[in-house]
């Protein structure tokens, strides 16, 4: 009895003690926001079978960041523009040739990354903190970052709510959506913008190398559990928030790099769902099969 009370106190302290610092409160706030934002955007990525697109865009923002740094404007704007352009290059190559989408994606990813590195050298923007950009630092998040992410999350949430049924139709049956006259090109552009915004917002926290995990991981975990698109967004958000927060605490208490810590939590939750999902888990599924021959 007294032992369990002691346990609660220790865990409580472990959770509460860091909150006295502003940077921890910022980190927690941004975990919640990114958990929601990335789960919603990631849900659309996964059901369209475009998970790797997040990989392309997250790497392709580098030239934009370099140019923005050179011009002295907000890095997010440069990153956003470069990300959207890269996605359109992929679509353009796919639509106008026999090249398959995975080939187009690897080509664009590496070319934009190469261009970014050249620009950093040529424009002498190597004062840019590359390691922070690549790996992120959730404990370095500022209050301004939190506000920027809050605005992006709010915009994506509102647009998703307004166009939910049209986006669902389009991502489920693109041909049928075109047949009933939905503006499919505009919707595709909107989704690309949302993905790029989510990546730009996550950059600071987990870095461009690990942003794919935040976008695809929690939504993929939810995908194994739910049966409706909006449930995938809600459950994915919960997993995303949990991963961000738990990863942040690990990072704080044990001095781990924050991005990788978050990614490992995301993957652990995914593995749990893969094994134990009530409807699709590997272990639960085989047990059901053996009890129900």
């Amino acid at each position: 009895m007294s032992l369990s009370i002691l346990g609660v106190i220790v865990v409580g302290q472990w959770l509460v003690e860091p909150l006295q610092f502003q940077f921890v409160r910022n980190a927690l706030a941004i975990s919640v926001l990114l958990g929601i934002l990335c789960a919603i955007v990631g849900t659309y990525l996964i059901v369209q079978e475009k998970g790797m697109m997040s990989c392309v865009i997250s790497h392709a923002i580098l030239p934009g960041i370099s140019i923005a740094f050179f011009l002295g404007i907000n890095l997010s704007i440069g990153a956003f523009i470069a990300g959207v352009i890269s996605a359109f290059f992929v679509v353009f190559i796919r639509a106008s040739s026999r090249i398959k989408i995975d080939t187009a994606m690897s080509l664009i990813l590496s070319s934009f990354l190469g261009l970014g590195i050249i620009l950093i050298t040529v424009l002498k923007t190597n004062k840019l903190d590359l390691s922070n950009l690549l790996f992120g630092d959730i404990l370095g998040v500022t209050t301004a970052d939190v506000w920027e992410t809050a605005v992006i999350t709010a915009i994506v949430l509102i647009l998703t709510k307004l166009f939910y049924k049209e986006l669902q139709f389009y991502t489920f049956d693109p041909l049928g959506a075109r047949a009933i006259g939905l503006p499919v090109n505009t919707m595709y552009f909107g989704l690309i913008c949302a993905i790029t915004l989510a990546i730009v917002a996550s950059m600071q926290t987990v870095g461009v190398l690990l942003v794919m995990a935040l976008l695809t991981g929690p939504a993929a975990t939810a995908y194994l559990i739910v049966k409706e698109l909006h449930e995938m967004m809600i459950v994915g958000s919960i997993f995303g928030i949990l991963s961000g927060a738990i990863g942040m605490y690990f990072s704080y208490h044990w001095d781990l790099p924050s991005g990788p810590a978050i990614v490992m939590v995301i993957f652990a939750l995914f593995l749990l769902a893969l094994l134990l999902s009530p409807s699709q888990g590997i272990l639960t599924r085989s047990r059901r099969r053996s009890t129900n021959p």
Partner: peptide, 8 residues
């Protein structure tokens, strides 16, 4: 043409 794993 359709992905029948779509959550719907």
């Amino acid at each position: 043409q359709i992905d029948w794993d779509y959550p719907i």
